[in-house]
Design a protein around this nucleic acid. Structure first.
Lengths: 237, 237
DNA sequence: GTGTAGCCGGTGACATGCTACATGCGACTA
DNA sequence: TAGTCGCATGTAGCATGTCACCGGCTACAC
């Protein structure tokens, strides 16, 4: 919504290695209150801090965040447009309870997008060395998060991993879309995955995928991705 | 953004045939000014009435539409989130000029979504008779619009045709997504298609597709869809 | 002529007051 | 007791005022 796109929340965030002497602060870069509210509320939804079905009002959030209603309303409207919330006229906003059908819809879309995408990445000429390098770094962090059972961190890195790879295709819209779809899978469903200790297994999938891509083996990459998404589909419901 | 989703703008709009005596008006059903502004401005963008690159302000639109700035701002932000506009902080909003790369990105996404989707529709058991029936009706109107060279009408019906079919899969998110992607292809590029008289040819594609679906021939449907999208890709640039 | 500092107009960002409306609950009726 | 009405309450929707900020323009200094 305001300023730059919000879909880049999971961007690489690489720090230039030559920032020896910043001399002066680059720029604070004024982030609008609306954007901040958006991020806060979205994070709360994904983390499952908001009760699905319960009504929340603009004023409530505004009071909590310590800003006026306008930017909050703006943020809530954006989230509603994305499909993370619904709004009842003159009643309030509520987070949608995720039904099995919703999970089905989203995974179906992800299959349609992510599987062909990963195949294209594998076939890329020349190979996207930079993206693969970054993905390897992220993978290391990912395993660490899995070790620690840090679910939120795991989720964020998982997202970053896949978006980094897909972004190598240079299709910004595709990258953004996949990111949004991932955000729609709320955390609660994943929690049992953590409990059951499958986080490592899921993490290893990433390594297999990475090696397939480095070898330029599209078929293996596709197979891996299918397994990955298939597991989500079953585990979630 | 406000009230119900805006993605359903192209919904069937079927009238129940048993509305013999309405007795009383059903309900006006209050549509928010923000939604109306959204629709108006979006239509203007798609129709090419707004000059790409030119700066427009909230106040301008507000004055034109005869409402205050708030709902207009809301609408513009929604359009910006969808990617139809960009906003320059403290400068204004501008419609993005569509580059060849943009067309490439969008058609690539459409291929990833619409081709598998149409294949699934063809394989649907039982066949989606109702959707096919409606698609046939729309096709008739479509050809009429092509005869008359009514480009806007043609575009709207083309959209409705494909969304009706895809919606048979029951994946609301998919339907909405495809609709949005189509909206991102502005009209100007299509204009030369009309001039070159290829509207009928494009229209006939729909008939071929329809017959393939009715025969449950997924391969033929896919081939048709690929041809359809391929033509867009080349014609547009 | 050239570079620059400062002003000025216009814009989005935000706060806030007001209005119309959907809902729930309690009182009132039969 | 069961059903209905009406009002209190809280909400989103919208209008409007204020502010900080950006960029273009101009006039001045050199």
């Amino acid at each position: 919504m305001p300023e730059e796109s919000r879909a880049d929340a999971g961007r690489p965030m690489e720090r230039a290695e030559h920032d020896a002497t910043p001399l002066i602060e680059p720029i604070p870069k004024a982030v609008s209150l609306a954007t901040q509210a958006y991020e806060h509320i979205k994070a709360a939804i994904i983390a499952g801090d908001l009760i699905p079905g319960q009504l929340y009002s603009v004023s409530q959030f505004a009071a909590l965040l310590g800003v006026s209603r306008t930017p909050v309303r703006e943020a809530l409207l954006a989230l509603a447009a994305e499909g993370l919330l619904t709004m009842d006229r003159n009643r309030g906003f509520r987070v949608l309870p995720m039904s099995a059908h919703d999970v089905e819809e989203i995974t179906q879309l992800r299959q349609m997008l992510e599987i062909p995408a990963i195949a294209q990445v594998a076939r890329l000429q020349p190979p996207p060395r930079e993206a693969l390098r970054r993905a390897r770094e992220i993978y290391a962090d990912l395993q660490k998060a899995a070790d620690e059972g840090n679910l939120l961190e795991f989720l964020a890195l998982d997202r970053q991993f896949h978006l980094t790879l897909i972004d190598a295709l240079g299709n910004k819209r595709l990258t953004r879309l996949v990111g949004e779809l991932r955000d729609h899978m709320h955390l609660p469903g994943l929690r049992r995955l953590a409990i059951s200790g499958q986080l490592h297994e899921s993490g290893r999938d990433h390594l297999v995928l990475l090696e397939a891509l480095e070898a330029g083996d599209a078929d293996a990459a596709v197979a891996c991705m299918e397994r990955h998404l298939g597991r989500i589909r079953t585990d979630w419901a």
